[in-house]
């Protein structure tokens, strides 16, 4: 999984499965690496579960149990901290020299507007962009955001920002 956007989506899905109401996603890009941090206010894990979560093929929710392992193995740096009842934070960093690229992050962000609020902090070569889906939702429901093309505009906006500041190959 060299497209970091997919890894972010994967980690975020864990947060959603853990019942998170708020997601904070920070993504940073510079010449060398692409890093991200996903933190949530989901149910969190105790030590035992956390250890098992990082084992290949182990799952507590009936899935294949390979997600986190994949993220961990592809990343240059990987950190996870979690507290039962508080939430979980995942940090990962990928080397661009290993072939990692951000990919279609706009498309990922489009899938992250739901009944939870996502705050995105995107930083590409020092230029930053912030999106709070809670603000979008204050005016329109998710379905309205979808059917009226608001999310499409958001997707195009994000990708335009990434391409303009990070180049076509990011």
């Amino acid at each position: 999984m060299r497209e970091v956007s997919l890894a972010i989506s994967d980690v975020a899905q864990n947060s959603i499965d853990a019942g998170a109401k708020h997601l904070r996603i920070a993504v940073g890009v510079d010449e060398e690496c692409i890093s991200f941090e996903v933190s949530d206010d989901g149910q969190g894990m105790d030590k035992e579960v956390l250890t098992a979560a990082l084992e290949d093929g182990k799952s507590f929710k009936g899935s294949s149990g390979i997600g986190l392992t994949l993220v961990k193995e592809n990343a240059k740096q990987f950190e996870i901290s979690s507290e039962k009842g508080i939430g979980t934070t995942v940090r990962a960093s990928y080397l661009r020299s290993d072939g990692a690229y951000l990919g279609d992050f706009g498309a990922t962000m489009l899938t992250l507007v739901g009944d939870f609020d996502t705050v995105l902090e995107l930083s590409v070569y020092g230029r930053t962009k912030r999106i709070d889906t809670g603000e979008l939702k204050s005016a329109l429901s998710v379905a309205e955001l979808q059917s009226r093309g608001v999310l499409r505009l958001m997707r195009e906006d994000i990708n335009k920002f990434i391409r303009q500041n990070g180049g076509a190959n990011l």
Binding site: V142, Q146, G149, R152
Partner: peptide, 19 residues
């Protein structure tokens, strides 16, 4: 999502779920 928008269909919600 794109198709719902282009076809201008009302009353559809697309959401994600886990495995």
């Amino acid at each position: 999502v794109d198709e719902v928008e282009t076809k201008n269909i009302k009353g559809v919600l697309v959401t994600r779920t886990g495995c």
